[in-house]
Every structure is written in structure tokens, then in C-alpha cells.
Design a protein around this nucleic acid. Structure first.
Lengths: 181, 181
DNA sequence: CCGAAGTTTCAGTATTTTCTGAAATTTGAT
DNA sequence: ATCAAATTTCAGAAAATACTGAAACTTCGG
């Protein structure tokens, strides 16, 4: 590893825990991401000085996040891994997986909690707060879904507009006052 | 705790690790969030059966996330805690803190990596990929900043529009072809 | 300034998570 | 079918993280 790559890999290792993956997984991903060619598990284990089995686990985890793709090289039985390099594609994948793992379980817990009949004033207040949380999470979840379908270019456009989108919304509201929202 | 509140608290405890906080912190937050009145540390420790010091740590952590607010009750020296109940406010706070903790350190690492002169073809490729990642993170970071400033109503409007915003952007492009992006 | 009520720190313990190496399994060429 | 190359599983070791209780500290009324 060159010093440049090493610094990148080390950073991903350190940040891993904040991002909900562990150090090994972070480093493996970073290494694959900057590699000019697909890597096999042995090369990764060698480069990062991790056991072969640890790397195997890490690669499985990365596959479950859909952050790495499996490839086969002709005349070689080993599995090679590469990472999508398009940043927008990565963002989309991450957003989708996070929604699935971090929002959906909570949404379904909230849904069933809201079906219960409150047994006290305390419960009534609790449900009220849960309702607020539920509605927001649902809104965001659907929004993610929608955004998922936009092409990279439109997304970029939307982001670059930033706060100016507010003006646009006000304008639209005036143009089509009956359309609501 | 009523069964309803218990289920909510337990869920937050379990999800905690996925959200980058620990079980205790998740449960403390959940409890404060649904409580109809501010709670003091002793009540929390009692209700959740955690040691007083563990609760103290947890509350500090929640304060660092700006998810709970400190209050004082007249004639009582103890510190009471309550959580903002407006879902949008919570979302904003979370987005801002995550940006600060999960994106900014990476952004600055990438910035310095991109200043290096690549020492090989391998480094050149690595830098290219890092550039893509850097640009996207920066874009998102700035977008978060912008969105931060929108009021809840506009945000909700934007989200509810979902994918239809694309149409709007196309339309705008046609209306003001010279305005760029 | 004293003491009681409250909060925080911290060193040690418990728990959880990560990592390894050996064994088991799968795969595919012959 | 056989066998060697590769991958996966898994039980236990190692490391990291969370939790506790006791002691230290802070705050404020008197």
C-alpha cells in the first residue's frame, strides 16, 4: 500500500464504528474502492494483515450492503471483488440499505404501538409523540423511495439548488393555487 | 412503565447499536421522549434499572447530540430532562450532528489526500475515486446546510412532492434556460 | 463557611463484539 | 468420482465497550 492508500484505508477503519460497520469491514471496503483492479480475498487479507476468515466475513457483510460486486477472472477459480465507483450509485445503495435497516423496523414497531388502545393519560401522550415520529419517518421513507428513482443528474441538480428550491415552491404554489401543497 | 411505553423503550434499546448509540442511551432517550413531564436522573435510573452513574453518562451523551434539554423545576435542585417533541426539529438536529460526526472528518481527510502528488499510477486512480467521493460528500454536506435553514412546512412540502420535483425542475429549466442548473 | 443534596469521575468488572485458526464444506477441473 | 483449490463455519481467544459502586467533586441554602 502506498502512503496515500494507507491513509484512506486507516481512516475508513477508524470511522467504521460511527458508520455502523466494524474496522475490518471499513478497511476492506476502502481498499477495494481505491484499487484499480478487482482484488481477491487473499490479497486483501495479506495487505491488511487480517486472517483469511475475517476477510471472508467482512466481504459477506459488504455484499449484504451491496457495496461490493463479485467478479470472476477467466482461468482463475478465486472470487474477485470490486466496488462501484460512481459516487451517486453508492449513495443510493447506502440510503436504501439504511432505510431498510434503520428505519423500517422502527416504523413497524410504531405502527403496532399506534394500534393499541391507550390505557392511561400517560399512554395517550406517549402515543401522540409516537404518532409524530411515525409520520415523519414514513414521510422520509417514502421520499427516499422517490429520490431513489431519480437519475443522478436530476439529483445533483436538486442538491445544487439547495435552499433556492424554497423560492421555486413558493412560485409554484402561486402558479397553481388549486393543486394544494 | 406501561406495556406500551415499555415496548417503545425496549425497541430503542435494541436499535441503539444500529444508530450509533448504545442500549442505555437509546432507552433513556425513548423514555424521556414519551414522558408527559420532564424526568430527573434518579427517576430514569429507577425506571430502567440502570446505575445512577450510567444514566449520568447517557444523559451527557444525549446532551452532546442535543436530543435532550435540561430544565430546572422551581424549589428542586435536581436537573430534569425533556426532549423536543417536534419531529422536524429532531430530524434537523440529527441530520446536523450526523453531518458533523460522520461526514466532516472524512471530508477533511479526503481534502488533504487530494492535495498530495500521486506517486504512481495506482495513486492516480485512487485519487480519482477519492475525488468522486469528496465531491459528492461536499455536495450533500452543503445541501444539508441549506435544508437546515428551511422551515418545517417547506421541508414537508418538498418531501411530499417526492419525485414530482423532477417535473418541476424540468419545467424551470425551460422557463429560465439561462439561469443554469 | 458548612453541610446536605446532587452530579460526575474513575478504576475495576462484566458483557459484547471482533478476530483467529482449525476443521468442514463447496466448487470445478480432470 | 476424485482431488486440490478455494470458501465458510465455528468455537474459543483477544479486544473493545458498557456498566457499576465508591469516592471525589460541585452547588447552593442556611
Amino acid at each position: 500500500m502506498t502512503p496515500l492508500v494507507h491513509a484512506f484505508v486507516a481512516h475508513f477503519g477508524e470511522m467504521g464504528s460511527r458508520w455502523g460497520i466494524n474496522r475490518t469491514v471499513g478497511q476492506i471496503y476502502a481498499l477495494i474502492f481505491v484499487s484499480p483492479r478487482p482484488l481477491c480475498a487473499d490479497e486483501i487479507a495479506e495487505t491488511l494483515s487480517y486472517s483469511r476468515s475475517n476477510v471472508s466475513m467482512g466481504l459477506k457483510e459488504l455484499q449484504s450492503w451491496r457495496l461490493v460486486k463479485l467478479r470472476h477472472m477467466p482461468g482463475d477459480r478465486r472470487e474477485y471483488f470490486e466496488a462501484p465507483t460512481d459516487a451517486w450509485e453508492i449513495f443510493r445503495t447506502l440510503a436504501e440499505e439504511r432505510r431498510r435497516r434503520e428505519m423500517e423496523p422502527t416504523l413497524s414497531m410504531l405502527r403496532s404501538a399506534l394500534l393499541e388502545t391507550p390505557s392511561s393519560e400517560e399512554d395517550r401522550v406517549a402515543q401522540e409523540r409516537m404518532k409524530g415520529m411515525h409520520d415523519l419517518i414514513e414521510l422520509m421513507s417514502n421520499w427516499f423511495d422517490d429520490v431513489q428513482r431519480l437519475d443522478a443528474q436530476t439529483l445533483a441538480k436538486l442538491m445544487r439548488m439547495g435552499a433556492r428550491v424554497q423560492k421555486l415552491l413558493e412560485l409554484t404554489g402561486q402558479l397553481k393555487p388549486g393543486t394544494k401543497e
